[in-house]
Write a protein that binds this DNA or RNA. Structure first.
Lengths: 191, 191
DNA sequence: TTAGTATTAAGACCAGGTTACAAACTGCTT
DNA sequence: AAGCAGTTTGTAACCTGGTCTTAATACTAA
């Protein structure tokens, strides 16, 4: 069960890809090699120690989870004029794109636009009634998508909001959101 | 700046809710109290040490992030007839809803519909060109959203797909997705 | 055989804890 | 003022999962 150094390192990377929470000790056992060798291999492959890995994963996924599910805004809100307009920026990273095409998954565009539209309204219980979005250009990890929202019209609590997302002045998506501002909790159409 | 023990412990929990990656030392400084006290408080509140917190967060969010971003489908695909129709089920949990209203965030609807639409097309590089969605009813944690997609028309690689999401026969969202099947990598309009 | 590389082992050190215990400071009663 | 309880703080020893350095051993090709 002796692997060449090359093979062993590939196996090590594979193991860690499957489960990044393995200690050097566990890795050593799995690969049938000493802990010292595992450390050397990690060094050579520039793989940080378990704690750093855990913390990095935690910190990155945590904030992203928060952004995606726990918080009200997807993307960083950089400007906001309630009832008028707003701007948010979304940094695209590897986690957000399709494995196959390497391009941003549509729902991040939708989510960025959606949450920006809701932020602009900022009623106690604003909610999206409907939306209409088009995607123009592919986006890749490293791109910064700047979304600008503009309120087009307001009619007793019903906002029409236009959102445009650009990467360096090139438009990547364009959408209209119809948002309903509900101030009591009895309304319908929460999104 | 002296807090009662009660208040201090609340403050500690608050701090950790905001940023779970604070060391005892940082907490001690923030609360104006010794490290030993922080440890006692953590003990009393059954809050594990930093490393355990990091690892736990990492382990739990890691799998969820993979489910949310790393895979091609949001929701569980339960039926699929390529080029024709498909069904997916999304279990709504607390992480997916707005804190304030307790209702599902629009982008999960969008994402469920979007990924289902793409799955139905299943070209090598299918991508959403545009969409048009309406949200009808609020959805709460525990609900199972069953989405059914139906291909309406196909014209040289351009699919019109209608998706309906229901919770127990009650319609919660309805959307049309325009998906482009791109078999080479040169096309535009990836979503 | 021997040089050079790969592997292992052994020792000291570190961060961020743990446990156990002692000391000090508080508020309050007697 | 003395005594006591509860709270807070400090100290020392130990643990894990590493670090870094040095040294010894094993393997392999010339």
């Amino acid at each position: 069960m002796k692997l060449s150094r090359q093979k062993r390192r590939e196996a090590l990377q594979q193991k860690l890809a499957e489960d990044p929470f393995l200690t050097d000790h566990q890795l050593a056992e799995a690969l049938g090699v000493s802990v010292a060798t595992v450390r050397l291999d990690r060094m050579a492959l520039a793989i940080p120690e378990l704690r750093v890995r855990a913390k990095t994963i935690a910190a990155s996924t945590y904030s992203r989870m928060k952004a995606l599910t726990g918080e009200e805004i997807v993307g960083d809100l950089v400007e906001l004029n309630l009832g008028q307009n707003g701007t948010s920026v979304l940094e695209v990273d590897e986690q957000m794109v399709f494995a196959r095409t390497g391009t941003l998954r549509g729902h991040f565009f939708f989510a960025q636009g959606n949450s920006l539209a809701l932020a602009v309204v900022n009623s106690e219980y604003a909610s999206t009634k409907s939306s209409d979005i088009s995607f123009f250009r592919e986006v890749r990890p490293g791109d910064r998508v700047v979304a600008k929202a503009q309120v087009i019209s307001v009619e007793n609590g019903n906002y029409r909001i236009s959102v445009e997302g650009r990467v360096q002045d090139e438009i990547v998506f364009q959408g209209k959101y119809f948002v309903m501002a509900v101030d009591d909790r009895g309304g319908i159409g929460r999104g």
